[in-house]
Write a protein that binds this DNA or RNA. Structure first.
Length: 427
DNA sequence: TCTGGGGTCCTAGGACCC
DNA sequence: TCTGGGGTCCTAGGACCC
């Protein structure tokens, strides 16, 4: 039976690579890889680089020579650019679907009613054309009765060329052939550990998983496993999240360009994280009452060291200075001399919406100070939004150049910075 | 020299209460 | 000899996602 409402899964192909190629057409058709923060690992590549055998997730320094030999272009990740393109993409999708769930920077789920002949191929190929024409990014579309099915359909859309980036698994009467083509670890929700466990029991592909004993699956993986199995079978268990739920925590962490071993430097880094974390809080209209800060040495060297410390805030806050104070005190706790720290971060949790928050302020002085700081934060945020992050900064957080994360191969911000918009001379 | 960052959900176990 | 039972809340850790 074909359901009248289809679940659609849309994702941008090789999103980061596509964005880079879109703003710099001179690298089109050539191999391209994108590096993680700090130019650490390869986190994205275009199809040309994939065909040349460049793996995902591997450290850059190990592949540098190979990339050079193969003449593959390299870019540091440019999240401002990707975020901006993503916003445009989602806006267009929203206009052309019924309900939309923005699932990640380059993925969305949506629903759409089937036309009377049940076929969504025309709608889908028009949408692909529209996105490419307006944004310059190729997308793939998978269609099914559930989220898990639509992810699988998308996979097939990408895998088989003649599908031209679009596949509807719902209208396939007997899905066995297609499900048996999907490796168990390619099923959405089945990760490394689970696929190992399943393989040992002879479950190798999506079809096997759909057909296996629910009892066994439930025993080991509980409701999580059962949901995946039922969704494979066309039963909706994972609902679309149309309204973006409030965030539950905010985590900001970075690896340093070079190891640090002084308390002063660690404090600067933590301060920087607190500043951007509290800015995020204000953007989402939330406040935090629990802060964790952490740091660690390299996993790859002798004597791995990590430490963390927590503080509760009496009154939930989104104010930079209020949050900064306990964090700087905590930094004394997590710091240990002579340890070469390569990473640090903060986690703000127990987030709550400011809408429902009761302000427990004890005296008129507190109220006055609160109002003052709110005003100050607002001004700083708006200046930084308009003129680029870190136009205005706190002196406690100015990073020494050498250990700021490396981004040596960053593309220019062609869509988000006025000064890097290309100049075109017309005759 | 060199190995990312930011999330969510679920479960088990401990603390605590009556 | 023998040490309740049920509920809730919190936390840590595992697993997964992009």
């Amino acid at each position: 039976m074909i359901m009248s409402k289809a679940i659609i899964q849309i994702d941008a192909n090789n999103f980061y690579a596509s964005c880079e190629q879109m703003i710099d057409p001179s690298i089109k058709g050539k191999g391209l890889v994108i590096l993680s923060n700090n130019d650490g690992c390869i986190i994205a590549r275009n199809s040309e680089a994939r065909k040349m055998g460049i793996p995902m997730g591997k450290p850059y320094f190990k592949l540098k020579n190979k990339l050079n030999q193969l003449n593959i272009n390299v870019r540091s990740s440019n999240y401002e650019l990707y975020g901006d393109i993503s916003n445009r993409l989602m806006q267009l999708l929203r206009k052309n679907c019924e309900e939309l769930e923005i699932y990640s920077i380059d993925e969305a789920f949506a629903t759409i009613k089937r036309p009377s002949n049940k076929y969504l191929y025309q709608w889908g190929s028009e949408l692909r054309g529209l996105i490419y024409q307006n944004i310059g990014i190729p997308i793939s579309i998978g269609i099914g009765d559930t989220k898990v099915q639509s992810k699988i359909a998308n996979h097939i859309a990408k895998k088989i060329k003649k599908n031209s980036g679009l596949f509807d698994i719902s209208i396939i009467e007997n899905k066995d052939y297609f499900l048996s083509q999907i490796r168990i670890d390619e099923v959405w929700g089945v990760g490394k550990r689970m696929s190992e466990w399943l393989r040992i029991r002879g479950i190798h592909n999506a079809k096997d998983l759909r057909n296996m004993s629910s009892m066994k699956l439930r025993e080991k993986y509980g409701i999580v496993g059962i949901r995946i199995q039922r969704e494979l079978n066309g039963e909706k268990c994972i609902p679309l999240q149309v309204k973006q739920p409030d965030r539950k925590e905010i985590c900001i962490s970075r690896s340093f360009g070079y190891p640090i071993d002084s308390l002063a430097e660690l404090k600067k880094a933590i301060a920087k994280f607190v500043i951007s974390g509290s800015q995020k809080l204000r953007k989402y209209n939330q406040s935090t009452s629990m802060i964790t800060i952490f740091t660690n040495t390299s996993h790859y060297s002798e004597g791995f060291f990590k430490s963390e410390a927590k503080a509760k805030l009496e009154i939930p806050s989104d104010d930079t200075i209020t949050i900064l104070k306990p964090c700087l005190e905590l930094t004394n706790k997590i710091f240990k001399p002579y340890k070469k720290l390569i990473k640090a971060g903060i986690i703000m949790s127990n987030l709550q919406s400011k809408k429902y928050q009761q302000n427990i302020l004890f005296n008129i002085q507190d109220v006055k100070q609160e109002i003052k700081r709110n005003k100050l934060n607002k001004i700083i945020d708006s200046i930084n939004t308009k003129n680029g992050r870190e136009t205005l900064n706190w002196s406690s957080s100015v990073l020494d150049k050498e250990w700021s994360p490396r981004r040596n191969k960053i593309s220019t911000f062609k869509t988000t910075k006025i000064e890097s918009i290309p100049i075109i001379f017309a005759n």
